[in-house]
Amino acid sequence: MYKIPAQTYPIIQEWIAHGSRVLDLGCGDGSLLKTLAGTKQVEGIGVEISEEMILKCISKGICVYQADIDKDLSEWDDGSFDYVVLNATLQVITRPYRVIEEMLRVGRFAIISISNFGYARNRLRVLAQGRVSSSARISGGWHDTPVLRYVSLKEFISSIREIGVEIMDARYIFPFNVVSSTRWPLYNLLAKEGIFRLRRT
């Protein structure tokens, strides 16, 4: 399965205001919401599809809603949340534009983190091995990996603008835990991940 990058937690915490209402899509075992509840006193709800993860969330006292985020966001009213988070989950979504639009409908801001498929190691792997579906974060073969979307930071940034979404803030995570908020040259080759704070333009 896909590894949740904990490096993004401090960045998300920095962006989220104290006491806000947060919806975490694909919340896994609820660890992000647990962290945010502790440090930022947020009122958080997680959305998760896996029964195993739901049980973990409920047992931790995390509020969780079992749903398929590709289908079920329509139940929340407009502006129900301050932040809607999609942490390391975009890659497994069937209709990403639809989900991003829904995120910015139910929430004022969206926070999306993605693993950069344009990262040098991923490029080398494809180049050297000729294998597309084996990147550092992906398990399984092409036929059963949950990862459906292979996207680079550059592609994400340019496409997100086209659908009327503004990037308010971004952090690029490089090897050795180097994090930058500016888009350095060659970022699309050297950054492992990116995380973005978004709103409607």
Partner: peptide
């Protein structure tokens, strides 16, 4: 059941929802 969740969430009740297969 989902309507129940939405109703209580609107009152800031911390409601969890699960659909059992």
């Amino acid at each position: 059941s989902k309507e129940i969740v939405q109703f209580f969430s609107a009152f800031n009740v911390r409601v969890s929802y699960t659909e059992i297969a």
